[in-house]
Simulated scan of single mutants.
Amino acid sequence: MSHTAHIRSHRKPRRSASTLAVRAGVAGGVLGTLAVAGASGSANAAEPVTQTLELPTLTADLAAQTAQSADATEQAAAHYQLQAERDAAAAKAAKQAKADLVEAKKKAAEARKKAQEEARIQAAARAARSAERTTLSTTSDGGSTSTGTSTDTSTSTGTSTATGSAAAVVSFVKAQIGKAYISGATGSSAYDCSGLVQTAFKQVGVSLPRVSQDQSTAGTQVSLSNLQPGDVLYWGSAGSAYHVAVYVGDGMFVGAQNPSTGVVERPLSYDPPTGAVRVL
């Protein structure tokens, strides 16, 4: 017997075919799993590429939406600005209209006040004339005259023919007949009563006061029964007369009566004067 018959061999025991098959199967499974995993990983890795390709489309849509939103915002802002401008213009117009209304009311009130004052003055003048007529009638019937002022209603007992400067005064006032009456006017297209008298005497170099109150005492008091052309007639009391005119002869006078008639020629009986002064 060999001396090595009982010695175990150092070589590795041979694997059986079944063992090798199992191991091969396991290895194949592992490799298959790895292949599947790799394939899956590759598939998953490809997805971002697909999403990245879609990004430009999404970005363009978003830009368009943003632009539309900006346009809408700009249009809304322009609309609000236009509306604000319209509101401001309307407010300004309303404010101006209110101011115009206040001014119109103010002017209307002033016009009414002026008209009322003018009516009051005319009414007072009419009342005073009526009172003077009553006084003249009474004193004429009683054959008496008032102190300092003649109230005799008889007229034209003096000369009726104007001469010299008186003739020039008479000629001037007759030339103004038909012109307008304007309070405060002294010619040449309009006069008030004292303005006409003052301007008439100015033609012959005589300076008379401006207002009727002063003109009624500017000369020598004369009786209404001894009037001469060129005498200054007055209505009211001497020194406080409210109307004056010029006697032109033949029982007639010329005066700037009122805004309705203007400068007219009237008989003394139309509106009998209170007295007269002789300046020339």
Rank of each mutant, 00 (worst) to 15 (best):
T261H: 09
Q68G: 11
D61G: 12
R15L: 14
S269L: 02
D61F: 12
A200Y: 08
S9E: 13
G38V: 10
K107H: 14
R133V: 10
L268S: 08
G255P: 04
I182D: 05
A185Y: 03
E118I: 14
E85G: 12
Q176A: 02
Y234W: 09
G205Y: 09
G239K: 09
T66L: 11
K113E: 13
Y181W: 06
A93F: 07
T274V: 05
T66G: 09
Y191E: 01
G143K: 04
A162C: 03
P273A: 03
F201W: 12
A115S: 14
L31H: 02
T147I: 14
P273W: 06
V264D: 02
R266N: 03
L31V: 11
H79L: 10
A89N: 13
R210V: 00
T155Y: 02
S9N: 13
G236C: 03
S154Q: 15
Q81K: 04
L101F: 11
G184V: 06
S237I: 00
L233D: 01
S146D: 08
V30A: 14
T33Q: 03
A43D: 06
P56N: 10
T33S: 11
Q116K: 14
A76D: 10
A190L: 01
A185P: 07
S160P: 00
K107V: 15
T145A: 07
R14S: 08
A27M: 06
A78N: 13
I182L: 05
Q228F: 05
G219C: 08
Q51E: 10
L196D: 01
E265Q: 14
A175M: 03
A167T: 04
P56L: 11
S260E: 10
A108K: 13
A46K: 08
E110L: 10
S154P: 09
P272H: 07
S9I: 03
L55Y: 13
G29L: 09
S240A: 05
G187A: 02
K179Q: 01
A27Y: 00
A168P: 07
L31R: 00
L82R: 12
T274I: 05
E85L: 14
T149S: 07
Q83A: 15
S216E: 03
T57R: 12
A124Q: 15
V22S: 11
E54S: 14
S130R: 06
L208W: 13
E118T: 15
L280A: 01
S223C: 05
D152P: 06
P267I: 04
Y270E: 03
D250S: 15
L101E: 15
T151L: 13
A245G: 01
A78Y: 09
P13I: 06
A111T: 10
T157V: 07
K95L: 14
R120E: 09
S154A: 15
